[in-house]
């Protein structure tokens, strides 16, 4: 399946991926300004930039072949979509137990404490292709490709 990969040598640490991730998951998924100005409460970004010295890279869910988070989910809210392969969470069924957070070996799942729900990258399934972070990465550090693993 096509996934988001980061080429850290080109990641400039601008955090624009986060900014657009927020927009894409807000009430105004195509209007950055309204998303931020009127979107209160703002959704959390589903990916984030790790930084150490000159090294920076954006990081998000790997949409694993055999996702631990899915096996761990106590309500069955987390599923791996059989056709697209995207690991998705049915928000209504998430009870905020954070089991998935513990289970994910990559630490790709965040806690939205305000709403009591987990959040993670959904590859912008409802937004478009490529995902917003890739689309708006100013340096093409994020790419959305198929890589035989």
């Amino acid at each position: 399946m096509k996934k988001v990969y980061v080429r850290e040598e080109y990641c400039i640490g601008c955090h624009l991926c986060e900014v657009y991730c927020v927009m894409a998951h807000s009430r105004y998924p195509h209007d950055l300004l309204k998303a931020f100005k009127k979107g209160d409460p703002l959704p959390l970004p589903r990916l984030w930039v790790e930084e150490k010295g000159p090294l920076t890279f954006a990081f998000q869910c790997r949409h694993c072949e055999e996702p631990h988070c899915v096996s761990a989910c106590i309500t069955g809210a987390l599923q791996k979509d059989t056709t697209t392969g995207v690991v998705t969470c049915e928000q209504e069924r998430c009870v905020g137990c954070w089991t998935c957070v513990l289970a994910c070996t990559y630490g790709a799942i965040r806690r939205d404490t305000k709403n009591g729900k987990m959040v993670k990258c959904d590859l912008c399934s409802n937004w478009g292709e490529p995902p917003a972070c890739v689309y708006y990465c100013p340096n093409e550090a994020l790419i959305f490709v198929e890589r035989g693993e």
């Binding site: 040598e9 080109y10 990641c11 400039i12 640490g13 010295g53 000159p54 920076t56 340096n139 093409e140 550090a141």
Partner: peptide
């Protein structure tokens, strides 16, 4: 712009593919 510099943080701003 990552052009006239050797600072690794700045150099990567110029993706040579682009």
């Amino acid at each position: 712009w990552g052009i006239a510099t050797q600072d690794p943080y700045l150099v990567k701003r110029l993706n040579p593919e682009i």
